[in-house]
């Protein structure tokens, strides 16, 4: 699946077909994401690639959660591509990473989504079970 990865995307761990870790950097000089590396966690279901993988940002000592109006501070990403309706089996880890990279690149607002605090505090669902409303077509 992986030949040569695009710039700014590094495969960290792909030992099995359940969980992969990928590091993503924003290459273009966007001041919000300068000098930071974000770690993405892919969790594949048995139905992949028919079903979308579960993709979240993970936080650790060296990898923060990027600021973006569609990324909650617990790492959950609101992106139609990762939802069942928006997913297409032709996507793969690389294309998802590139999409997220460009989503970050084009962002100009250093903020969290509306209601981030409440969502982060009260959400117990897995990302795939959350019904996102996809309202913003600019990203």
């Amino acid at each position: 699946m992986q030949g040569k990865l695009p710039d700014g995307i590094t495969l960290i761990q792909a030992d099995n077909y359940e969980t992969w870790l990928v590091d993503v950097k924003v290459i273009d000089p966007n001041p919000i994401y300068q000098n930071e590396t974000y770690r993405l966690k892919f969790t594949f279901s048995g139905q992949y690639p028919i079903e979308p993988p579960e993709v979240t940002f993970v936080r650790d000592a060296t990898h923060p959660i990027p600021y973006h109006p569609h990324i909650y501070s617990n790492g959950i990403i609101c992106l139609d591509l990762l939802d069942r309706q928006g997913w297409s089996p032709v996507h793969n880890v690389e294309s998802v990473c590139v999409s997220l990279q460009s989503m970050l690149t084009s962002n100009t607002k250093k903020e969290r989504p509306e209601g981030d605090d409440n969502f982060v505090r009260y959400n117990t669902q897995r990302p795939r079970d959350i019904n996102f409303m996809f309202h913003d077509d600019t990203v």
């Binding site: 028919i50 079903e51 069942r84 297409s88 089996p89 032709v90």
Partner: peptide, 21 residues
């Protein structure tokens, strides 16, 4: 077979091309 699998979750009248929709 791949196409059949990909289309399984989509409702009958709304099949789209996985690449270009």
């Amino acid at each position: 077979d791949c196409l059949e699998h990909a289309w399984a979750p989509q409702s009958a009248g709304r099949k789209t091309c996985p690449t270009c929709r």
